[in-house]
């Protein structure tokens, strides 16, 4: 065997072993257990503090708004407009959900975009409101 061959094999073997050793250090243990991601991340994300209460929780106290308003029947959850409200659900006095004002939360769904499904009523905000807040003409829960 030519003398170059064993040296080259040794050099490549060193590279491969070095790479495998490096890989064993940097790839997390749970990588690939349940898919192409770090399985532990599911538990870590699950352990993050919750912020949303869910509309059933809102309905326990605010049944007057949570039942049969057109927004709710249309599938819009309370916290879509009022923001994360778990802290309010746990202690109603110390934390209040966002009260709606101006046109920002309305425009999020009702500003005209060509790609938006046509079942959602849409307006060009500047032309439609003339600078007035939406609530001047519309009631928020039954617009």
């Amino acid at each position: 065997m030519a003398p170059q061959v064993p040296r080259l094999i040794l050099a490549f073997a060193t590279l491969v072993v070095g790479f495998l050793a490096f890989r064993s250090q940097v790839v997390p243990d749970s990588f690939g257990e349940t898919g192409f991601y770090r399985a532990d991340s599911v538990k870590e994300i699950g352990d993050l503090p919750m912020k949303h209460a869910g509309e059933e929780t809102c309905a326990t106290c605010h049944s007057d708004f949570a039942e049969a308003t057109s927004h709710v029947l249309g599938g819009v959850a309370c916290e879509s407009c009022h923001g994360p409200s778990l802290a309010h659900a746990e202690d109603g006095a110390s934390s209040k959900p966002n009260r709606l004002g101006g046109d920002v939360p309305c425009a999020r769904c009702h500003e005209e975009i060509a790609g938006r499904p046509s079942v959602i009523p849409q307006i060009v905000l500047e032309e439609h409101t003339g600078g007035e807040p939406c609530q001047s003409c519309h009631t928020v829960h039954e617009p």
Binding site: A2, P3, Q4, R7
Partner: peptide, 18 residues
């Protein structure tokens, strides 16, 4: 050179063929 200092005709011929 990876420490391979052999420049015999055989070794050089191997270099060329490889």
């Amino acid at each position: 050179t990876l420490g391979v200092m052999d420049t015999s005709e055989k070794a050089v011929r191997f270099d060329d063929r490889a």
